[in-house]
Design a protein around this nucleic acid. Structure first.
Lengths: 193, 193
DNA sequence: AACCGTTGCCAACACCCGTTGGCAAACACT
DNA sequence: AGTGTTTGCCAACGGGTGTTGGCAACGGTT
């Protein structure tokens, strides 16, 4: 019951914690979960491997902290319904390019069950929630969100993971032009009989 | 120069080789490249780990043998141009469901550079070649094939790797109905300005 | 100055990995 | 029957992994 600030006073080791997290995101994104070793991450952050354990408990704990992610989806109710597809692709493309966290999550989700679970959560909660905001048949919302995820994750997978040359070389604007109609139909198109 | 059959007379160890390969495909598909250990594969095949080394040289060699893959794309010139998309999705869906090799390749490609290279080769050669058979602008062929790959691999990634519930629960026929128009447009649609 | 929690490093543990060499049994062929 | 090759197993090596415990230096508080 000390009168001082009790919950989150800045600690002296915050810089170290941040360095670890940054190095972890880089390594997880570049190498995937199993190849990204704690020793390598610690070396990148220029500290001892045991520090990682002290601050994050375990490798799984470190990954959980490094893969915290918010899609930051815009408010879709304020978007002209006919431009939903375009807005979404553009947003996702900008989001991958600017933050390697999702690439890390994507790579790790292929082999690590926990990472896959987290990816499921992100898309089930955030994407499905966004799709649900504009009134479509609730029974179809999850399916529409899933289809959008399939195209958006396929874009990320081919462009950032496998690096298929045509997908890497094509400019973002052109990718948007091609893919926007796909998402538009998945979101607002009439379902097949 | 013996008169006997010189090239490939059946060896007594062929059964063992096949058992190893089968177990390897299963493990690589289920666990990815790094988590699928030679010891576990050998245990599944009920032989000693050193046998794997003798017959396939190394873990990389084993993977190369296990991930040999042919998309078996049908002859697209004999397909009504308006149904190209439908035929393609249906073919891919059937191909993943019946053979776990591609799932193994997909998982491994996320973390193993060699596997990614192989995946690039498969789609660059086989898919692009198939797209090139019907006469579109050659300058656009690679891009069209890349877009198709992005949607098809995204489907596989969300359905078999991450296992997003809406993508797992939806029946193949319904997936085909949703996705076929996407591929159709990527293949034959007019490019954006 | 004396105290105590924090920060950091070092050394080590126990385990698992891919890979290797040698040795016994089974087989093929003369 | 005898010889050489093939098939298989065992035991081990060298190296890398996540993780742990202890110990020195530092910082703030009294």
């Amino acid at each position: 019951m000390t009168p001082s600030a009790q919950s989150t006073q800045p600690r002296r080791s915050d810089a170290t914690r941040a360095a670890i997290l940054r190095a972890a995101r880089e390594r997880f994104a570049a190498d995937g979960y199993e190849r990204a070793t704690i020793r390598a991450i610690a070396a990148d952050a220029q500290i001892d491997p045991s520090m990682v354990m002290r601050y994050y408990g375990s490798k799984e704990g470190l990954f959980a902290a490094a893969a915290e992610f918010d899609l930051r989806l815009p408010d879709l109710t304020s978007v002209p319904p006919a431009r939903l597809g375009e807005v979404l692709v553009r947003h996702f493309l900008a989001r991958w390019e600017g933050d390697e966290t999702l690439v890390a999550l994507l790579r790790a989700a292929s082999t690590n069950p926990g990472a896959a679970e987290r990816m499921r959560g992100i898309f089930a909660n955030q994407l499905t929630a966004a799709v649900a905001t504009f009134g479509t048949d609730p029974a179809l919302t999850a399916r529409r969100a899933g289809l959008v995820a399939s195209q958006v994750l396929g874009l990320a997978f081919t462009r950032y993971i496998v690096r298929l040359p045509p997908m890497v070389d094509t400019a973002p604007d052109e990718l948007v032009a091609w893919i926007a109609p796909t998402l538009q139909r998945y979101l607002t198109g009439t379902p097949p009989s």
